[in-house]
Amino acid sequence: MSCKSVSSLLVGGILCLVAGVAWAQTDPLPSWNDGEVKKSVTDFVARVTAEGGPDFVPAPERVAVFDNDGTLWTEQPFYFQGFFALDRVKAMAPQHPEWKTTQPFKAVLDGDMKALAGSGEKGLMQIIGVAHSGMTTDDFSKSVVDWLATARHPRFKRPYTELTYQPMLELLALLRSKGFKTFIVSAGGVEFMRPWTERVYGIPPEQVVGSSGVVTFRTDPSGKPILLKMPKIEFVDEGPGKPVGINRFIGRRPIFAFGNSDGDLQMLQWTTAGAGARFAGIVHHTDAEREYAYDRASKVGKLDQALDEGRARGWTVVDMKRDWRAVFKPEK
């Protein structure tokens, strides 16, 4: 081989390397593996933001909605808000000695998860009612922030807010860079999420839609106006409640929606029922090593009907193990 040929090969190799580095630096979704799933996302965003193109959507109509639990952060082995409620009950127990002999509170204090599960939805609602009421909205917000600062996930031993999915954080950033307005639409409590979503996801509190309890206006003994949380459910943002919540609190039908469970099915159906270009995505948890693997039989984040309908209708189904290069950010 001539010196000239060797030189050409070296130059070509360097140029390829430089081009590869440049692509890595400009790739908006570096934690997504290249393939059809990633392409479906980037192609959709490109189509609806190409001015003059057939699928162009004006910026005010670029509404994207995301479920939270299991879509933006981990939801196993139990919803994080559930862990918060259990810890709140333990912290409040000294003021309630009767809980030592009263279910479901006795199960919480004894760490008896089997008995707690046996109390069913009624027992869970009792716990949430106690843990999420009887205080002002400001005090509740502070309790959430304080808990997140110290609580750790039972498996990963990391703060819950570090168990957000890096690929989804990149997706949120990509959408916002292209003129989308991003919303959370979650079955989780709206006042549980709002204190931290802007810091963690870049989604401000006014763009969080969730389940809510009754809040009443009062004045405290000093005459200061307060909002007091009451032990009564007002709105459940789950299943068919999600399109209702979108209509009530957002006022525009989304063109982009991402969920991970049957509780998100109606939100995905509502999004894709609109005219023009539409995107529906599902996070399928298939990675037991890096996170969790579950779907049809899970009691938390069950994915059954939505998985079947998503595949039948050509929605984008993310296989976590195959499609995500990374799940979480590296530990600090």
Rank of each mutant, 00 (worst) to 15 (best):
E98G: 13
A50K: 15
D55K: 05
E61K: 10
L86S: 10
T71I: 04
A93C: 07
P97W: 09
F78A: 14
P97L: 12
T74W: 01
A85I: 04
E75R: 03
P54C: 12
D67P: 00
G70F: 00
D69Q: 04
A64N: 07
Y79E: 02
T74V: 06
V63H: 01
G52E: 10
A59M: 11
D69M: 01
E75D: 11
D87F: 02
E61D: 15
P54F: 09
P94Y: 12
A91S: 14
P54L: 11
T74E: 08
G82Q: 04
A64E: 08
P54T: 07
A93W: 07
V89R: 03
D87Q: 10
V57G: 10
F83Y: 12
P97M: 06
L86H: 08
M92V: 12
F56L: 08
A64W: 02
G52H: 14
F80D: 02
F66N: 02
V63Y: 03
H96W: 10
A50Q: 15
F80I: 11
P60Y: 08
A91C: 09
G52Y: 12
Q76F: 00
F78H: 10
D69Y: 01
R88K: 15
Q95I: 06
G53E: 12
R62D: 05
A50Y: 13
P97E: 12
F56G: 11
R62M: 05
V89F: 04
D55W: 09
P58A: 15
G70E: 00
K90D: 09
Q95L: 12
K90R: 15
R62F: 05
A59N: 12
Q95A: 15
K90M: 11
F84G: 03
P60L: 08
W73S: 03
Q76A: 07
V63N: 07
W73A: 04
F83T: 05
G70L: 02
F66I: 02
L72N: 04
V89I: 15
F66P: 00
A85C: 14
P94K: 12
L72K: 03
P97S: 10
A85R: 04
G82W: 02
T74M: 11
V63S: 07
D69G: 04
G70W: 00
Q76V: 03
Q95W: 03
D55L: 12
F66G: 01
W73K: 04
L86V: 14
D67C: 02
P54S: 13
E51C: 08
E51P: 05
G52S: 14
E61G: 09
D67F: 01
V63I: 15
E75L: 01
F80N: 06
G70S: 09
F80L: 05
H96Q: 15
V89N: 08
F66C: 05
T74P: 00
R88P: 02
A64S: 07
R88M: 10
F84A: 07
T71F: 01
R62H: 08
A93P: 06
E51M: 09
D55E: 14
H96A: 14
A50W: 13
E61T: 04
E61L: 13
V89A: 10
M92T: 06
P54E: 13
A64H: 06
M92L: 15
A64Q: 05
E51R: 14
P94A: 14
P60K: 11
A64Y: 05
W73D: 03
Q81C: 01
G70T: 01
R62V: 03
A50R: 14
G82K: 05
E61S: 13
D69R: 00
G70K: 00
P94L: 13
T71L: 02
